[in-house]
Nucleic acid binder design. Structure first.
Lengths: 341, 341
DNA sequence: CTGAAAGCGCTTACAG
DNA sequence: CTGAAAGCGCTTACAG
């Protein structure tokens, strides 16, 4: 193991003080340009690497951002993370990522770990069953910035990054109505979460607007996974009065449902029109191709980290920002198209 | 911002030395049990959290593991990362994750960042086009343990964690031959990478074993993504002498190919049998359901971090381990089944 | 523009 | 079983 080079080694060789070397390395304005050049050249030559631990200890900052998500291995979340990694990497920040696995208990444990890791800021998308805000209070107390994204904590006073879920739900439903559909079932997840409750609101608004009576039996709360997709299909098959359209709040679930419906000899979109949510790559590879809402996952991840870093650097005050809304978009493919001829 | 509690605060209150407090907190065997209880109680009471930067600076360790993957948002990789996060979290290690986006250039930059972040160990799955090992040499020189997983660097002297890709390729191909298929096209990725070259070897072995002559034109190197799947389908459609089976080294590509083939009125599996690779959830939701190789992604992530931590703790010597092979498995579904009646 | 000095919060070899 | 002391590598208020 070769010895690590420190600023003292550079200082000795150059007959400078460590203070000057430190300032030169950090591009301090008071330092002579020639000195900077000299110091940087020697640093490169010696293979110097700054010790972040010493620096962080001294500066009382960590340059680390914590991220808590329900799961890492969903299309949306892994894409959000990819966007976060990109920006964090560019800005010289590290990400500590953990998953709550949809459990409030694990989320609380994760928050504790983030707290003792002394993250400079925290980005959170909450678990299905999270009720309590308590595990985030230590961050508030210490003025550690906390941003929620995708699944937010409503009325938390924390900034949020979201899409307009109500608008997306409205557009999806309106599109189905425009296809002549009337008996539209909305399949969704835990209504505690804004992403699902807001989509439901949009769905209801579109129906009401078109004079279609709301039917509480047409809202099915499920786990929104592959398994749920299969169960939904069987449940529909058994129904005497079948829906003529489905608006499903997750592509993966929608695709699984479509595949099972086809096995059960129900024709999509002739018998039932389907609209999904997320624009998962899988939406394009099934037959019929899935109409869905494009979710700007990468942009959301980038925006979350950018906002946080801007706040930390003092370029932007998050306290005055409440909500950043990103644009989503209805993408019409074959699964929803229906023409009565 | 409330003041941070340090071991000095605890020491003062308890009339002990900081050294004793430090030892008590770290469960040092020489410390009186009663003292430990006392110290820990007071620490909890005061909301003490250890300063990792001071500790790391002193101990010259970082408790951080670096991970470089081609992409974060593929099913396999996000699942591998999920497994890694689980174990790292349990063991109190942090993960720094970065993506090469399939480019050697970015991979080199990532390795540099990992190096200056002073990771205790590095886990790497290499990019499509990586030729050079040079960017990993600094880790070797500093004896920072380096483990490759999935896409490994052959002949690198580093430990590897893989599945038996040749065996998997062999089983997939043998299964197709058993269905009576003879003209089997293998669709794969960059053959620089073991995952693809080994699957090809298995494919060739199965053909040879069954007395089927190898035909170089039956091996198609592609980007293995959705787009490639569509192109392959069109290419097949235009072929006079069509293959009767496809062995595609990625489910996502296979699913996209199947969907396009169906659009082009080619029946799967009647006209062409298809086997994919990975057991991506998407494999189960298309029609026909995709025969594939189950890839133990979560286990691979867990194993990678476990091995690294064991090595760092001195429980296991990685230098003597060359390769850890995890079990993969052929999962037969409808897309490959063919009976000549 | 540069330097001397203190200190961030911990750990550990040494001493008792 | 406990303590005094040194030091990990940096940054910065103060001085010149």
């Amino acid at each position: 193991m070769s010895k690590e080079i420190t600023i003292y080694d550079i200082a000795n060789q150059l007959k400078l003080s460590p203070a000057t070397v430190s300032r030169a390395l950090n591009d301090h304005p008071a330092i002579n340009e020639k000195t900077k050049l000299l110091v940087n050249a020697r640093a490169t030559e010696l293979g110097y690497r700054s010790n972040k631990f010493a620096s962080n200890l001294r500066k009382q900052k960590t340059n680390t951002i914590g991220v808590i998500v329900p799961r890492l291995n969903s299309y949306i979340m892994s894409t959000v993370i990819a966007g976060m990694e990109k920006v964090a990497n560019e800005e010289g920040f590290n990400l500590i990522i953990s998953q709550s696995l949809e459990s409030q208990k694990k989320e609380i444990a994760n928050a504790k770990t983030m707290f003792s890791s002394r993250v400079d800021g925290l980005l959170v998308s909450v678990a299905f069953d999270t009720d309590s805000f308590e595990h985030f209070l230590p961050f508030m107390k210490k003025k550690i910035p906390l941003i929620f994204f995708d699944r937010i904590f409503e009325n938390s006073d924390c900034p949020d990054i979201v899409i307009d879920n109500a608008k997306a739900g409205y557009e999806a439903t309106k599109h189905l109505i425009e296809q002549g559909r009337r008996n539209i079932v909305h399949i969704t997840g835990n209504l505690k979460r804004n992403v699902y409750s807001d989509r439901l609101k949009g769905y209801q608004q579109a129906l009401t607007e078109q004079g279609i009576p709301l039917n509480q039996d047409n809202v099915w709360v499920t786990a929104l996974n592959l398994e749920a997709g299969r169960e939904i299909a069987h449940r529909i098959k058994a129904l005497a009065n079948k829906p003529d359209a489905l608006f499903i709040a997750s592509d993966l679930c929608a695709v699984s449902c479509i595949a099972t419906l086809k096995d059960l000899k129900i024709d999509i979109p002739k018998d039932i029109s389907v609209v999904g949510f997320n624009n998962d790559p899988v939406a394009q590879v099934i037959s019929p191709k899935l109409t869905t809402i494009h979710y700007p996952a990468k942009e959301m991840g980038e925006m979350a980290v950018k906002s946080l870093i801007n706040h930390l650097k003092g370029n932007m005050n998050l306290d005055t920002t409440t909500t950043i809304t990103l644009r989503s978009e209805l993408i019409i493919r074959e699964s929803s198209l229906f023409s009565r001829d």
